[in-house]
Design a protein around this nucleic acid. Structure first.
Lengths: 332, 332
DNA sequence: TTGAAAGCGTTACCAG
DNA sequence: CTGGTAACGCTTTCAA
């Protein structure tokens, strides 16, 4: 079907040359209005669409954005969180005239090899990196190759010369919001269930809680508890904080998993999780929600600015920090 | 960097013509062993990779498989379930020399338009459809256009002339397994929390439970309860079954959401969910788990058979029904 | 077994 | 403003 209608077919029907058709499509201002109309009609009548492959041969642009699908749950952006981000990315990319190409990779080194492979074969125009961590080799590699990319996640501990564009959600603002909410509800001994120091995301989220308590004249140190992620871990950690000399009456958690664990102690405490995962929704857990669709849109925007932008004018700062929201606030 | 090494560069280095290089890559048997070696070395030394765009112009194959990312949770394949499927698909596709291209679409009609668009521009070689439902217009459309595709999900109610390849997980086998397990644990009054009749997936899962009870001489009708998906819905439905004249002591559920609702009644009943979502894992809920990586691999396999396969020899049946597994069996 | 030539559909560069 | 020509990198006849 459709036997591949080419630009020549359109030209023939509109009674102009192929180049004029190309001009109408790419630089309409060069073509007389009347001709333009005629060509546009022919395009519509024939259902013509420029072949991306042919275009790529000429322009060198594939209009493909490569994204890695995580093997499973990871820290940072996990499970359905990634799902939602990916959906937003696909949608925003389409609006900007790009498509999302998926790849996988076991570890960072394998990912570098995949970069190379992808670049040689499909030649994606850019990459979106998620779950960046300290000393992430991927950013340096891409930067070195001058491949456009954005990260969803700040460049935790990256050397300042790598001033690449990134998008992130302000985790500290989220936990600060949660803590403020609990303070307003009358809580004073508000604990934090967090990951061990060293993860950018985890430390950031802890900081928001700590500074909000401190601003209230409460020393957070005593109410801070660190553990690996997971429901049982959260339950154990919550118990520790609940059975301390000065027990907590509320908990801010770095993840919904830990929050769920806290809930499972069965004790009467206020708990706020992070990420608003389906689990949280299912059990009615208050949680800090990341604006993932916006984050995805921002990623595409930053990329489009590099790819379609004029020359390399610096333009506005290429970093975007979004505000999260607190959902299902405690009704009590 | 890497200034795009072309086939001509390889030819020069190996002191052969471009065509010979192409032959070594595509039809090695046509080239003398010695020359082959020389070319292979040059390829490796230069890090040559054939440009997909150029190749596509000649062959008409994009080596792209298009998949739709769901807007959010839907029935059937939802949330992290889709995540895992997508990861498996990406991995299997890469092994078979394909990449996964993403797209979105609001409803079925919008999806047809997207098919057309994608086909005109990026020319994916095939589509993978998930969440097929009764009277799904997408399969008929693709079939009519002779575009290769597979569905993850059986062709519920599709006309028999659409004998397209599909992959699915045997939901009835899963619930049968769950029911059998509960019977073995001594339960007799085993209820089913399901979706309203009319969804292929839901009806299939109900059937497995019903036939297993019936085989035991128990009439399932009395223990069947239908409701929309969701945790509160599951809780209400479970209450109904628990407070009936002959109360159930165990429940098989069509989804983890409903199962979680049942759990939240706080009553002492055995519950089995479906899909082994993170929620289920988090609360230790027994659940029927779909082999998603295998399902994805089967999809790619069926596609590859159409795309790379010889002529159109029918080959073995192009339908794959996989067995699910019951995880976190009740310990008691 | 290897080499030469054609062509896939575009866009960019020139003259008219 | 419009038309011709070239070139992108590859695979596929066809001859040598």
């Amino acid at each position: 079907m459709a036997d591949k209608v080419t630009i020549a077919d359109v030209a023939r029907r509109a009674k102009v040359s192929r180049q004029t058709v190309s001009n109408v499509l790419n630089s309409p201002e060069l073509v007389r209005e009347e001709t333009r109309q005629r060509v546009r009609e022919a395009v519509k009548a024939l259902g013509y669409r420029a072949s991306q492959a042919a275009r790529q041969m000429r322009t060198g642009r594939s209009r493909l954005i490569a994204v890695r699908v995580e093997p499973a749950q990871e820290d940072g952006i996990n499970g359905s969180v990634f799902d939602r981000f990916l959906h937003g990315l696909t949608e925003s990319a389409a609006l900007a005239g790009y498509r999302v190409l998926l790849y996988t990779a076991g570890d960072h080194d394998a990912e570098l090899a995949t970069f190379d492979d992808l670049l040689g074969v499909y030649e994606p125009d850019a990459f979106v990196l998620t779950s960046t961590d300290y000393g992430d080799p991927r950013t340096a590699w891409l930067w070195g190759q001058r491949i456009p990319f954005v990260t969803f996640g700040r460049p935790w501990g990256a050397p300042p010369e790598l001033a690449y564009p990134w998008v992130d959600v302000d985790g500290a603002a989220g936990t600060a919001m949660a803590t403020r909410h609990l303070l307003d509800a009358g809580h004073r001994h508000i604990g934090f269930l967090g990951w061990p120091a060293g993860s950018g995301v985890g430390d950031d989220r802890r900081a928001g809680w700590a500074r909000t308590l401190a601003a209230e004249g409460i020393d957070p140190a005593e109410f801070d508890h660190t553990t690996a992620d997971g429901v049982p871990e959260g339950e154990a950690a919550a118990h520790a904080l609940l059975d301390a000399a000065r027990p907590v009456t509320a908990l801010v958690c770095v993840s919904d998993s830990l929050a769920l664990g806290a809930l499972r102690t069965g004790r009467r405490i206020a708990v706020v999780g992070f990420d608003d995962t389906p689990v949280a929704r299912a059990v009615g857990l208050a949680s800090v929600s990341q604006p993932l669709a916006e984050a995805a849109a921002a990623c595409v925007d930053l990329l489009a600015r590099q790819l379609d932008g004029p020359g390399d004018g610096d333009g506005p700062p290429a970093q975007v920090l979004l505000e999260p929201a607190l959902v299902r606030r405690l009704s009590a």
